[in-house]
């Protein structure tokens, strides 16, 4: 299928944003998933709620909160800009942050489920064999939750590819910088002859989503075979 250069730009940008937001999401999502699955502390309910807030809030609200905190004049953003000259406004980095924040709770949930599924008894076995808690986590728990990490990554990718509200509110709709596929489709529907473009990008979205699902299924099978579950 042939796309216009403008459409290719949007596709490439979407993939870039989804990829990097997923990469940045994984370590904190694994940490938070582990905390929610394996620890008890006062205020855990509030912590759990905070983690899930981006999931239940309107995405426009999430984008607005990002704007007033990380924007060039935001509570934190002014220092980023003043001290380091960093600005997320209208940049791909900003779009990546928006996508990461929105997909974070879904990723945490998938990983938390995976950790719940790892038998604590196997971790105890590792400890009796001389492994410290951290050692047991990296050599036993982490490998055993690989299928969960994979599904968490897939959810993160899918959710980042579809992100719209937070992105457009936080970093606007700038071609080549923040105009991902959903934003490009939105723009196309506002143009007089945009129908064909919107349709082509819609088909690309479907192909990307299906491709990701198929790849994830194949990887999941391989991992489960390696773990001896099949």
């Amino acid at each position: 299928m042939l796309l216009t250069p403008e459409e290719w730009t949007a596709v490439a940008l979407s993939l870039k944003v989804a990829f990097w937001s997923t990469i940045w999401n994984m370590p904190p999502a694994i940490l938070v998933g582990w905390i929610l699955s394996r620890t008890e502390f006062p205020g855990k309910g509030v912590f759990d709620g905070l983690v899930h807030l981006p999931l239940v809030l309107p995405k426009v609200v999430v984008g607005y909160v990002l704007l007033i905190t990380l924007g060039t004049r935001g509570y934190l953003g002014q220092y980023l800009y003043g001290w380091f000259g960093l600005s997320l406004m209208f940049t791909t980095a900003g779009a990546t942050v928006a996508a990461a924040v929105v997909s974070f709770p879904l990723t945490v949930n998938a990983i938390r489920l995976a950790i719940d599924g790892v038998d604590k008894g196997i971790e105890t076995a590792a400890r009796t064999l001389g492994a410290s808690k951290i050692d047991a986590f990296f050599t036993v728990t982490l490998p055993l939750m690989l299928p969960g990490i994979l599904s968490g990554a897939l959810i993160s990718l899918a959710s980042a590819l579809g992100e719209f509200g937070a992105t457009i509110t936080f970093v606007s709709n700038v071609e080549g910088q923040t105009r991902t596929i959903p934003l490009a489709i939105y723009s196309a529907t506002h143009m007089p002859d945009g129908d064909a473009m919107a349709l082509r990008l819609t088909i690309v979205s479907v192909i990307l989503a299906l491709g990701a699902l198929v790849l994830a299924e194949m990887a999941d099978r391989r991992i489960k075979i390696a773990l001896g579950r099949v």
């Binding site: 196997i122 105890t124 076995a125 390696a226 773990l227 001896g228």
Partner: peptide
């Protein structure tokens, strides 16, 4: 352990 608890991976 009663259930062996070998590391499956």
């Amino acid at each position: 352990f009663q259930d062996a608890r070998l590391f499956p991976h």
